[in-house]
Design a protein around this nucleic acid. Structure first.
Lengths: 227, 227
DNA sequence: GGTTTCAGTGTACATGTGTACTCCAAGATA
DNA sequence: TATCTTGGAGTACACATGTACACTGAAACC
């Protein structure tokens, strides 16, 4: 624990603070709580994060927390929501604007890398809690990722190469592709902030992995099982 | 928190317990601590696990913990070690005894599924902490998984189809295959204990994913970049 | 058989926790 | 203007936590 608990740039909210309507100020405190949590999550995991800690970092008194969230778990769900909001749209856009599977792959990876870059804290949270401690948070994250997969499967179904594929096989493929993305994001989150080279390597590896997979697609026959 | 903290079958260790040499008894208590931790980790994450909790569950007094581990983090590393010990050998064996890539895939997945089945607690721990809270534990797990990848890459290099591949591409392929395995294990850990059907589905999906990847292999050309 | 070692005990303490309660000042509403 | 509503403050309490310290009795050793 750092010696000075309120040391670095937390968002102090005070009654005296200038601010417009009451709703706006409440909203702002809510944001401050979310941001405070994300900031603290760079150092520790969600399940070991305490209500008091978050409140302190946000600059309000512990009991004030309850005006915004019933408990920490609810804060967790808000964090999941916040973290996934933009990514899903951006990915869908990326697939819509660029068709042709190779271009789609490059675009999607680029979007992912850029988003991880810009919202590192969100992705660190997601990566850490995807299999992590608090059950409801974990489930929320997984359901978001599953959604990502379904959306991808729907788009894939429109590609000529995949026209003859069964829904089951499409889901399998989509899950595989999403898995590669998740692994890449996982790896990116742990790259030192300045290290663009490693970042580039991870992106390139993910791209090549996706490309390898697409190479298998034309040869796929659902029923071929044995050696 | 459950009403009776010492309720279910924890391993009580007492001075009066019959036991042979002093070393053996110390070893047994150490095991009891590890087992206690694994038991508790079914309900909560490692970073929110307390030293007192583990000691209590193992049937010793809090301060007794220090006779075995310097702190919780060291316990965590012991858990990582314990969890990976058997799997790596089993996987290497599986690849050694069955050559021919399709058979290798089937065998490896079978080994993984069986091991997850038998040591569910280990894999739950690994899955949860792989991206989880305590840095040193996370790093230990990742290095084990990376090792898994390197070992696989070495074995892959011996396959005729991959003879011409660069080391870099082999690493990329190995990472992809290991990634599929990790995802599968992730999913398996959350299957309800009795539900063999879902288990079978996950295994089958992973197998198909691996098969699809191998289909891409003959078509791979390292330098082909564009659409 | 006497001495040493040491795994596990028991006590103690300062600190952090979640949450119940009352209070208040400023925004909302009439 | 007077009244109501409500974010947030302040106080309080009953816990749980990590670890320091002195202890004990049996195994290990001479």
């Amino acid at each position: 624990m750092p010696p000075s608990p309120n040391a670095h740039g937390r968002t102090r909210i005070r009654r005296e603070e200038v601010g417009a309507t009451r709703r706006e100020r409440k909203q702002r405190t809510r944001e401050a709580l979310i941001d405070a949590a994300l900031r603290l999550l760079e150092q520790e995991s969600f399940s070991s994060l305490s209500l008091r800690e978050v409140a302190r970092e946000a600059g309000i008194v512990p009991t004030g927390f309850y005006r915004h969230f019933e408990n920490m778990q609810e804060l967790g769900l808000a964090l999941v929501d916040r973290s996934f909001r933009s990514l899903r749209e951006m990915l869908r856009d990326a697939r819509a604007t660029a068709d042709g599977d190779q271009r789609m792959i490059r675009r999607s990876i680029a979007v992912l890398v850029a988003d991880v870059h810009e919202h590192r804290t969100h992705f660190r949270f997601i990566a850490r809690e995807r299999s992590g401690g608090v059950a409801s948070v974990r489930q929320a994250i997984r359901s978001q990722i599953r959604l990502l997969g379904s959306e991808l499967a729907t788009d894939l179904a429109r590609l000529p190469v995949l026209a003859s594929w069964s829904t089951d096989d499409l889901q399998m493929l989509a899950a595989l592709l999403v898995g590669v993305g998740v692994s890449a994001a996982d790896a990116l989150v742990d790259v030192a902030p300045g290290d663009e080279e490693t970042e580039q390597e991870i992106a390139s590896a993910a791209e090549r992995q996706l490309r390898l997979i697409t190479l298998g697609v034309p040869a796929w026959r659902s029923d071929q099982g044995g050696a």
